[in-house]
Nucleic acid binder design. Structure first.
Length: 250
DNA sequence: AAGTCGGGGCG
DNA sequence: CGCCCAGACTT
């Protein structure tokens, strides 16, 4: 019952890599229009590697977490220069690529090459936590959760299993209102057996967000044009105060 | 271990 | 308004 998504129609590692990066902390519905535009603009890793960084950032505009776009561009250049434009098929070299961590590496290697590499994204964390009725917040049991994901992924069906795993979390085993009656793992789920599926995973106790009072200046001329200064490569609020000719007083 | 980085959806 | 989303990276 897998969702029919554009990047699932492809087994091109490039297209799958792009989708995995776009999907980091970003919902499928948000990614859909960006993915199609991106593949039209940058159809291959060679085209992306040769593109201007401003053009790459423009195509990413609105998705947020802009270091993802800069890392995509850098990685495209690494792939062309050091890997002959081919995406590596082993975990170690993939993990060295900028912007690709363990979950994204597993997502790419399983979807593109059907390798049994585990994943542990937000969906999978929640599904496993409920499956074993995890007693602590997932952050305190990361190693155990990775171990379970690794033992579950079948040697010959990494692609189907990992995608089904994420689909289950995204469509059935949802955070607030899991649809347990239609869940294929219902009879294996310890949280369901104990009737605590909505209380697992346990929430992290986080300190309250501080409230800060700030001043904002918007410069508009008579023609209605607005002054815009591009942010630095790294840093947002932190780097803001380092702009040349900016001075911040109290 | 805790911060940083974003825009959008949802109840 | 607060939480969550196919996390990675720095400090």
């Amino acid at each position: 019952m897998g969702r029919d998504l554009p990047w699932r129609r492809s087994r091109d590692p490039y297209a799958i890599w792009i989708s995995e990066i776009m999907l980091q902390q970003t919902q499928v519905k948000t990614v859909l229009p960006y993915f199609d535009r991106w593949m039209a603009l940058f159809p291959t890793v060679a085209v992306l590697a040769a593109a201007d960084q401003q053009q790459v950032l423009k195509a990413w505009e609105g998705l947020g977490y802009y270091s993802r776009a800069r890392n995509l561009h850098r990685t495209a250049q690494v792939l062309v220069q050091a890997f002959g434009g081919q995406f590596p098929k082993e975990l170690d070299p993939v993990l060295k690529l900028p912007g690709i961590g363990r979950t994204t590496a597993g997502g790419i290697l399983s979807a593109a090459f059907n390798l049994p590499v585990p994943i542990l994204d937000g969906n999978v964390k929640r599904v496993i936590a409920r499956l074993v009725a995890l007693e602590v917040p997932p952050g305190e049991a990361i190693d155990r959760l990775w171990g379970i994901s690794e033992r579950l992924v079948p040697k010959d069906r990494g692609r189907d299993f990992n995608q089904a795993f994420m689909d289950l979390g995204a469509t059935v085993c949802t955070p607030k209102h899991p649809d347990c009656p239609s869940c294929p793992w219902r009879t294996d789920c310890q949280a369901y057996a104990q009737g605590v599926q909505t209380q697992v995973p346990k929430a992290v106790v986080r300190s309250p967000l501080p409230h800060k009072r700030i001043a904002v200046l918007m410069a508009v001329n008579g023609a209605g044009e607005v002054l815009i200064i591009q942010r630095p490569q790294a840093g947002l609020l932190a780097g803001l105060w380092d702009f040349p000719r900016w001075r911040v007083g109290r």
